[in-house]
Amino acid sequence: MKYGFYPGCSYKSEAGYKESVEAVCRAIGVELRELPDWNCCGATSMISMDAENAHLLTARIFALASKYGFDAVVTTCNACYTALRKTRKILKADAGLLAVINHQLVAEGLGITLLPKVRHLLEVFYQDIDAAAWTGKSPAGIGDIAVAAYYGCQLTRPWGDVDHPERPQMLDEFIKRLGYTVVDHSARTLCCGASHFFPYQDQCRPLVDKIIAEVRRKGAQVVTTLCPLCQLNLDAGQETRKGPPMPVPYFTQLAGLALGLSPVALGLDKLLNPIDTLLRKIR
């Protein structure tokens, strides 16, 4: 299966996201075709400062998809996902704006001929890939690892169409499919502070603490994420004094382990809070 892929700015620099996405896709037969010459989507912050140019930025990504013939764009980041979907919704409803933007894109020889669907890689893994592809290969011991699925606040909100806005299930179901033990908890969609972490550390640290404390209380050994910013905040922002460090692997890293791939190939050594003790459970 081939997909147009929009990696977004934080994809390559973070704790093994790129490595694990690539390794798992290769193993499972998913081909992510990176859109050549892609640009920043403006994330969720730009749209509140300068909506017009934010739409232009995002629209350029859609135009690239048109150019290379993709009817869907896959992202691996919640902020990209939201920004892309927001612009898509606005352009879909406002033919006038779409015309203005297309006019601006002409200079580059680009234009949106088809508004591509925006999808998170989790949707692809969970919905498009046959469930059987994930099972069967899991090494023994996987079931002994208790995982809490953390969705972040942007995947399901405000839309509520991919999954329930407050108590989403898709990541839990996917992790379960991989063979892990999933713990039910109440922090799935709590905010981690997102991009406010650096300017407002004092305010954001308690948010991370709350999430980590909750998943720990419910018996989780790791908390898995599907967004580079969430991963960074939860991993780097843990107030270690409050308990043993909690590893924060990407869902793709857990998927790779379940497929029997090597931890190093999945970039698991890059996690700040080490996952090594848990890896020993896998035989």
Partner: peptide, 11 residues
């Protein structure tokens, strides 16, 4: 309404 509490004594 959540079971996440703000203080340990409210566990």
């Amino acid at each position: 309404i959540t079971d996440i509490t703000d203080h340990p004594e409210d566990a």
